[in-house]
Design a protein around this nucleic acid. Structure first.
Lengths: 338, 338
DNA sequence: CCCCCCGCTGAAACCGATTACACTGTGGGT
DNA sequence: ACCCACAGTGTAATCGGTTTCAGCGGGGGG
């Protein structure tokens, strides 16, 4: 048997007698022959692998993205080459370079890697799709969470419940999610005209920063009626400080977060927040890059948005009727500890 | 310039004039030349990639493993090919086969993939290291959490605090962590002679199963003084049920979990538990496979144990003195195996 | 002055697959 | 009976690197 015939059998290209096919398959089985992917990649130019670049691999947020990507990839028979890029833009360039010949396409989430950046550094033919990244330049498709819409919805909800002085604890300044959430907050405040006023405190997504922001709020003459934190961990830090100061939530101050981390429904009071479907974002982004790999030219670049959902629990002071009934809460005597 | 010289420059093999080297480097820079990894792999037989097979990619547990693996891999300049294997042993075989030629080594965590299984299905020369898997056969190294030691330490602690009737809520029967934890519980109970008695309730690591187990405990004539759940989520379900029944924790019943998930310190009372250093497990396993890849023959197969740590908080009823301001941690592991 | 050795470079084999193309043999049409 | 079309198989080029080995030129020692 020649290598050509074996190759045809293995790849199911026709023109092989049934007899020889079975004979070859039997030998393949007996020898435990497995074709070498590297050689196959070299000759076909296909790797059936998607490179995934994330700024970090830690925590619920990325774990969920990876899960979504993995499920979608498995559905398509694609492999995943995973890489965390913690450092600078230079490191990102190196990381992407190192993937040349290893992957058919790239799924990128990084503060540095906007479309213009990619176009600058890679005359490459490797298609790429961005996740949750600023869109500058239009040579790449991108999928983003609707952070802005979610933040707007939250502010509208807080206003509807009756709160007027709504403060916002921001996230890190160079973080895309954080700036979008801030923008959404500002837009919604503006919608209400002179009735509502912006009030933004600095933060960095950490529990610690929420704690400090709350302490600062408590020193103000005119306390806000509601505090909207850029993410749940910040909101929890905030809650901790308010509990320590014996300020009732939501009695004295309403509180809201963003992300709907598992902790959110466990604290007391359960936290009103915005759910971000990270797994869906990952899955849709992978579908996007798979499509681009399949038909490089035919795929127009686009920016798609993944919807977020308002999750109303007790911490915002909405009446009980408004709140979902299926949320599990753990009754606790006092504050959640640190 | 010939391809040979370019290759020597890029790989830093000596014997190239400084003049030609700089000339080549300049051209490389200008053309944005990046060597094709597939071709390089084919000719060198090295991919600089480790395949990682996990039973699932969801949640804190795996997210931490991946983080540890990634950090260690980055340190060594290795890439990660990630794959979730949800299904049967057959699926695992397919997944491993598909990695032939793509990876230099395998990092495997799967209930099916013990060493004997691997030896059966792969006459392969690809080295592999197992994580948290039953060790049958000795052709592969493996790294395991000291689940057993952690469980023993917890039971000893509960006994030391004064509890005598200590119940255990088990995990899924086919889960390696779960069976090890159960074994540790039983061993520790046996240590205390007739003083303590085993009492095991079924569970499956879910919050729900903890809730049901607690409800069942409450119907007993002689309630346990302490409940040790096979993981934290189960303990939380348990706590929920106890709260509903107005049973004080730790006043009426002490409670302990396993894993030290982030939630554990947020609930009320904060949960006494066993911390499992998943990231460290991942990192050490990657170091192990990297060593095996580097020196295939020289690496003896071994089974190493990663220590777990007792984290004493309020839910177990330990006196305040025993607990630190933040939290007291006690080493809960025996020496690493051979 | 000749020769040898050594340092640098290039030509070509090789890794293990895919695939275009050549070849062989059979059956059917005229 | 002859030829052609076509299905089945094999040969060899190719992918893009690495690496062995040969060639070439220059400098130093005899």
């Amino acid at each position: 048997m020649s290598t050509a015939t074996v190759s045809r059998v293995i790849n199911g290209h026709g023109n092989v007698t049934h007899a020889t096919r079975t004979r070859i398959l039997r030998v393949v089985e007996r020898m435990r022959y497995v074709p070498d992917s590297a050689a196959r990649s070299l000759s076909t130019g296909l790797t059936n692998t998607i490179g995934v670049l994330l700024p970090d691999l830690y925590g619920e947020y990325f774990s969920e993205i990876i899960r979504g990507i993995d499920q979608a990839a498995r559905r398509r028979g694609l492999h995943l080459l995973l890489s965390g890029v913690h450092g600078s833009a230079a490191e990102a360039v190196l990381a992407i370079r190192a993937l040349k010949g290893r992957v058919d396409g790239l799924l990128i989430m990084s503060p540095y890697a906007d479309s213009a950046f990619l176009a600058d550094h890679f005359a490459d033919d490797t298609p790429a799709v961005l996740m949750n990244s600023p869109v500058r330049g239009n040579s790449h498709s991108s999928f983003c969470l609707d952070n802005r819409g979610g933040a707007r919805a939250m502010v509208r909800h807080l206003a509807q419940v009756g709160h007027r002085r709504i403060a916002f604890i921001a996230g890190p300044q160079n973080n895309f999610d954080a700036t979008e959430r801030l923008a959404g907050y500002c837009e919604a405040i503006a919608e209400f005209g002179p009735d509502l006023k912006e009030f933004v405190l600095p933060g960095d997504f950490s529990e610690e920063s929420g704690y400090r922001a709350a302490q600062r709020l408590l020193t103000l003459d005119e306390r806000p009626e509601a505090v909207f934190a850029a993410n749940d961990m910040t909101a929890l830090g905030c809650l901790h400080a308010l509990n320590e100061a014996r300020v009732a939530v939501p009695g004295d101050v309403a509180l809201a977060g963003f992300d709907d981390i598992p902790l959110a429904r466990f604290v007391s009071p359960p936290l009103t927040t915005v759910r971000v479907p990270m797994a869906e974002l990952g899955a849709r982004a992978l579908d996007g890059i798979a499509a681009a790999v399949g038909a490089p030219a035919a795929t127009p670049t686009s920016t798609q948005t993944v919807a977020t959902t308002l999750v109303i629990r007790a911490s915002c002071g909405a009446s009980a009727q408004l709140r979902a009934v299926d949320e599990l809460t753990v009754s606790g005597s006092d504050a959640a500890g640190n």
